[in-house]
Nucleic acid binder design. Sequence first.
DNA 1: ACTTGTCAACGAAATATTTCGTATTTTAGT
DNA 2: ACTAAAATACGAAATATTTCGTTGACAAGT
Lengths: 127, 127
Amino acid sequence: MVKPKIPKPTESELAILGILWEKGPCTVRQVNETLSKQQPTGYTTTLKLMQIMAEKGLVVRDQSQRTHVYQAHLPEEQTQNQLLGDLMDKAFGGSAEKLVLRALSAKKISAGELAKIKQMLTEIEGK
Amino acid sequence: MVKPKIPKPTESELAILGILWEKGPCTVRQVNETLSKQQPTGYTTTLKLMQIMAEKGLVVRDQSQRTHVYQAHLPEEQTQNQLLGDLMDKAFGGSAEKLVLRALSAKKISAGELAKIKQMLTEIEGK
DNA sequence: ACTTGTCAACGAAATATTTCGTATTTTAGT
DNA sequence: ACTAAAATACGAAATATTTCGTTGACAAGT
């Protein structure tokens, strides 16, 4: 039983995944237009990246229409876990606590967000 | 007044920075030995990387002795903030809350760690 | 002085990532 | 049927990253 083993997305690939997560299935043009607002990018550049991502298994594409439609293969959560775990190992000595504490102290978080986080903490404690 | 603008470390560079943060100033050999436990690496490979890092300003080196001694240029916290902010933008749509919640839910965190995190939350609320 | 081991310097190969130009196909409008 | 617009495929250049072999300098012990 072979697990396909999807590689970690590169920086550029992650930017594209972010768009697909937010907007759902998209064409290359849609992705390129969104991307270009952040960083002007040629159409074929985006196309090529998305083709490579399809080869890697990062996205799946529907080729049934003339204009292909792409969507992220893995759910947002799974990729976020992977990236977070990776960063935790590499930059935080494997400590989730350090990572969370730094994220909390470094960034401004609203009262509502704090409440949600506290609720999550309580749930975890309860287990 | 030009700010040097230190670039984001690559994957391999980050592994070296992690060692320098943990152990303090090190020679290339010390770093290479530690690195080789995680991932066997040739001495000159590590040397070259650290030389490049010195050029980029990621590390500073003391050349006064025959054997150079390197240390991280930026404090651990600053680089962690940079990387976390970067990941937050790229993979979490800029939401610190999402990032924290995911880190909390995905990884096992001890009771002691939870307590520290709660304390941090209370401090932030108090401000 | 000679040998041996350790080190930095350097260049270059190997690999990965990003960007884009060109060719071809398809669709829609005239 | 012809043309223009829009799309994919492909290849290759440009850049960034990683790895390592070779060389020459230095240092310690003999």
